[in-house]
Amino acid sequence: MPQRRTVTSRSQEPRQRFAEEVRRLREERGVSLRQLAEQLGWDPSTLAKLERGQTLGSPEIARALDDYYGTPDLVLAMWELAVADPTQFKERYRRYMVLESEAVSLWHYAVANLPGLLQTPAYARELLGAGGLTGDDLEVQVEARTRRRGLLTADGAPRFRTILSEVVLRTPLRDAKSWRTQLEHLLDMGHRSNVFIQVLPQTAGLHGLSNTNTMFLRGVNARTVAWVETGYSGELVQEITAVEKLQLSYDSVRDLALSPDESRKFIERMSEECRAEQADVA
């Protein structure tokens, strides 16, 4: 087996080093982008973007390049370094947004906050404000998040399932009226044929996604990727084995959750409790 090679690129930025190495390997082999694309079965425009540093591609394409050049794990290792670089978070999130807009189905699990696709403007404003946004920046983000909700109501909308930890529903907005509006919005969305909302009771105990907000996105090519997010960062998971492991954890959580009908009744009770509290205050 060929020895793993040392990266000789002079660039110290992981993304640029990845692009330089991909380009160098092709030039050393003496093939054009089109010839390489024909050999690998990938779109030549995708390979061109890799070499220009415009995209990082996927682990599958990194492995395909390693197989073609006979460089065991070299390209894949550089891809992993580039993806792990904290400066790439914004690009990963932009990539996630593209995948979300193109998905035919989305499966979601929420640890502490409602998914953006189900947030009212008031909920989005308070949540984003708590994260440090203020003024015009805050309003721009609230407007962007509100527009995203149209994904679930447009013609040909994807199927969307979210499993909400009970903690999500036990963490109200400061304004009781706004919180009740949010709960009623959940009930309205839950009546749509493409939206399924389930509640995971606190009595379910610990599970494989206890501290991870997760969204699975299935594309038109039947391939599924996952977006895993904490309060401080997010990661786009594309490697097949890692995605399958997350899906097994998601399936286990789904088994523990209330059915959509039971969950609707749970949210209705919370809405009525909120209404009663408002009446008492009045």
Score class of each variant (00 low, 15 high):
204 A>G: 05
94 R>T: 11
3 Q>P: 05
161 R>F: 01
161 R>T: 14
22 V>W: 00
128 L>P: 08
229 E>R: 04
101 S>I: 05
168 V>W: 01
257 A>E: 00
157 A>R: 10
80 E>I: 01
140 V>K: 14
210 S>M: 13
65 L>P: 06
84 A>E: 13
61 I>M: 11
52 R>W: 06
225 V>P: 04
40 L>G: 10
234 G>S: 00
122 A>Y: 03
252 S>K: 14
1 M>R: 11
157 A>M: 04
229 E>M: 00
171 T>K: 14
223 R>Y: 09
32 S>K: 07
144 A>H: 08
5 R>V: 10
204 A>W: 11
167 V>E: 04
232 Y>K: 09
24 R>C: 00
153 T>C: 08
120 T>W: 05
4 R>Y: 08
182 Q>Y: 02
121 P>D: 03
89 F>I: 00
55 T>Q: 05
113 N>Y: 14
95 R>K: 00
243 V>E: 04
128 L>F: 15
187 L>K: 04
53 G>W: 02
212 T>F: 12
252 S>I: 08
72 P>Q: 08
138 L>K: 04
195 V>M: 00
207 H>S: 00
73 D>G: 00
111 V>K: 05
253 V>Y: 10
74 L>K: 05
31 V>D: 05
107 W>Q: 07
39 Q>E: 15
143 E>G: 13
248 L>I: 15
50 L>E: 02
233 S>W: 07
103 A>D: 05
226 A>S: 03
81 L>Q: 15
120 T>C: 09
101 S>T: 12
16 Q>S: 10
109 Y>E: 01
215 M>N: 07
225 V>R: 09
21 E>N: 08
18 F>I: 01
251 D>P: 07
238 Q>I: 07
9 S>H: 04
91 E>H: 14
207 H>R: 09
25 L>E: 10
47 L>Y: 05
125 R>E: 14
262 E>C: 01
191 H>L: 11
10 R>N: 15
54 Q>H: 14
155 D>V: 12
56 L>S: 01
127 L>K: 11
80 E>G: 02
269 R>P: 03
94 R>P: 06
122 A>S: 12
277 E>Q: 12
190 G>K: 08
153 T>G: 11
118 L>E: 11
265 K>L: 12
279 A>Y: 11
162 T>D: 09
36 L>M: 14
235 E>K: 03
205 G>K: 10
223 R>L: 10
133 L>E: 12
107 W>T: 02
210 S>R: 10
259 S>W: 09
103 A>R: 14
166 E>L: 10
204 A>V: 09
99 L>C: 02
204 A>E: 05
96 Y>K: 04
132 G>N: 13
153 T>F: 03
248 L>T: 13
